[in-house]
Amino acid sequence: MRQTRGVLYPARLPEFHRLPPAANARDLVVWFWIPEWDIAPGRSSRQDIVGYPALNLVVEQGVVTLSGATTRASHRDLSGAGWAVGALLRPAAVAALTGDPAALVDAESIVDAPDLAQSVGAAMRSGDGRRERAVAAFSDWLAHRVGPIDGAASQANALAEILMGDRAADTVEEAATRLAVSVRTLQRLAHRHVGIAPAAMIRRRRLQEAAERLRLDPGADLSELAAELGYADHAHLTRDFRSILGIAPRTYRGGSGEEPAATPHA
């Protein structure tokens, strides 16, 4: 997956890194994402995101939060100076952090983890190599918190790969067949470990891919793109764009020319 997949306007990003987890957390984290910013007084940088259908555990300013999967695009206005260290979680990590990921859809909660906040914060203040040290500390904490993963958690990881990976299934039925489970079991796994339905995960992957393709090739034919990504037709792609991003694909294509990384916002 590309570094900026899911980011609608990459050139608006502050300094941004995606790092792999340490070996002890490979079954628990897809990647760690670390933005660092220093915005001039009176200015801000708006970050627009169409998030992955997954949970994120984030350390920022001494606070640890767990954010659920999202059903719509979101944004955040950065100002001043700061950093965050976030873990895009694999399904296997979720049960150790929440018993009801569906309750966190489009929401977040505070996690009581002062030791995680302290170790990651100390790493991020330590100069060169700070990001790598932060990832190592975060990985160690998660590996200890989650412990050995069971068969259901491993199966949930496989589900996410089948629905979101490079050779992803186009339908829920195909995903169930590849995982050798019933559609009902697939739905239960997704609800228990992600919080949203498998069909919603497929829909989000298609939308991310469509946005990325339009950003990289503004001249792409929308009908051809819709067919390649499994949409019924051009109108279906447009409806998906409007319902999740709030804009039509033609508007996004015309407006995806990148603006400076720190721009004023009202």
Rank of each mutant, 00 (worst) to 15 (best):
S74C: 02
A54T: 12
A200D: 13
A158P: 01
G165V: 12
D38K: 15
A220H: 09
S44M: 05
G246M: 06
Q187L: 01
D233K: 02
E36G: 05
D106M: 07
R90Y: 03
M1A: 11
A210Q: 08
S154K: 13
A23E: 15
A122P: 05
A25F: 05
L222P: 10
A143D: 07
Q187W: 03
G254F: 09
Q3N: 09
A226H: 09
A84K: 07
R184W: 02
L179M: 05
L237K: 03
L8M: 07
A40F: 02
D166Q: 10
P148R: 12
V64M: 09
L19R: 13
A54L: 11
L214D: 00
A136R: 13
A153T: 07
P35I: 04
E161L: 13
V135Q: 01
A176R: 04
P20W: 00
W33V: 03
D77T: 05
G219L: 09
A169N: 08
P53H: 11
H193A: 04
R2T: 15
L186E: 06
L216K: 10
R46E: 13
H17N: 07
S139N: 07
D112T: 12
W83T: 13
A102N: 10
G68P: 11
A190W: 05
N24V: 13
A93K: 08
H191A: 14
L179G: 06
V194T: 14
V111G: 07
G230S: 03
D233F: 01
D166H: 06
A117P: 05
T177C: 03
A266D: 13
T238P: 00
I34K: 11
A199K: 06
A103K: 05
P148T: 12
H191F: 01
V58H: 00
E36A: 11
A96Q: 11
G246K: 02
R145G: 04
D48L: 10
A211E: 06
M1N: 02
A23N: 09
V111W: 03
V183S: 12
E36C: 10
G86L: 04
A143C: 05
V63C: 04
L225T: 10
P91W: 01
A102D: 13
L189D: 06
P249W: 00
R192Y: 00
N157C: 07
V50N: 10
R26P: 02
P148M: 12
E258T: 08
V50Q: 01
G51Y: 02
S256G: 01
E258G: 15
A123M: 09
E212N: 03
V58G: 01
G127N: 03
A235C: 01
I49M: 08
S126D: 15
V85M: 08
R12C: 06
V7R: 03
D233G: 00
Y231C: 04
R215V: 00
A266L: 11
G99M: 08
E132W: 02
A266M: 01
A190H: 05
A137F: 07
R178N: 13
G129I: 06
A156K: 10
D112A: 13
S109G: 06
H75S: 15
L207A: 02
E161P: 07
L186K: 06
A156M: 09
E132G: 14
P260W: 09
L89Y: 08
L66Y: 05
A93Y: 05
E15V: 15
D38Y: 05
L216D: 11
G86H: 08
R131N: 13
